[in-house]
Nucleic acid binder design. Sequence first.
DNA 1: TTGATAATGATAATGATTATCAATGATAGC
DNA 2: GCTATCATTGATAATCATTATCATTATCAA
Lengths: 149, 149
Amino acid sequence: MKNSEIKKLNLEGHKSTRQRQLILDVIRSKRGIHMTAEEIYNYVKKKDEKIGIATVYRNIKILEEEGILLKARFKEGTTACYELCEWSGSHTHHHLVCLRCGKVSDMEQDLLGTIEALVADTKGFKTTDHRLDFYGICGECQKETEPKG
Amino acid sequence: MKNSEIKKLNLEGHKSTRQRQLILDVIRSKRGIHMTAEEIYNYVKKKDEKIGIATVYRNIKILEEEGILLKARFKEGTTACYELCEWSGSHTHHHLVCLRCGKVSDMEQDLLGTIEALVADTKGFKTTDHRLDFYGICGECQKETEPKG
DNA sequence: TTGATAATGATAATGATTATCAATGATAGC
DNA sequence: GCTATCATTGATAATCATTATCATTATCAA
């Protein structure tokens, strides 16, 4: 991670504002953690009491469009989560959603190459993108032998 | 399909109402088609001008809980879609979402057995459920050589 | 420094879904 | 068949995450 290189925000066609920088700082400092817009808002607020939630939403959207943030919604009816897009350029990674503790981790590899070929063969469907989430119990939670204390 | 058997709605702990029956009739008559709550509402309205959309939402929820309907949302920011759950008991089928015509078809087989094993091995994550959607161009749309007319 | 214009913060609007509540309908027991 | 009970309905208000609006402020190239 060339820290000097990513330290400064410089998006094509977007001005560099204090608020935008703060939002990106929070997201970077929470590497590997999936946050809702409101959670990001609360973290940023610690650095800038005056920031508005609309600004957070606006910047999240821009960062998403720029491929810096990845959006995901893990359960129906819940709020969208965001994470730093570590594998920039490739959207092909998967989520492991723990149903006990709620933690969401990532499976970096793309596992669907052969399956997409099968879909093409049997259905004539030409896949250009996909979404794959796994729901289950994460390693940590499995260690707790008593499911509910 | 034992039509006589499924013709009559008889849900455990739920009364059989005209509205509920009409909603289920619509869903059954649109086998293989994914509909939003509002689309279902509009179809049912043709048979019962007085029905309210809240009734549709309420019954969709019940049918979903009973495993008769399957809910899916295919793109961020879009409305939830419902389909008749043909493979009752097994939630393990996948969606093929055409990015050109918007049609959503199903891939009946569960393709993830070995992948889940890999997830368990590399991440120690015990999968109990999953969700897999493919986005791309369906067979019909591929036949149209000119992408945009 | 200045002018053009993008970004901000406050807040209203949106839109899908849920909750509320009085009126109605279904059904078991008589 | 009648009635009492209680789920269901329809109308509509409420909710809640997200967007749009708009006057004000900040950024940045010239």
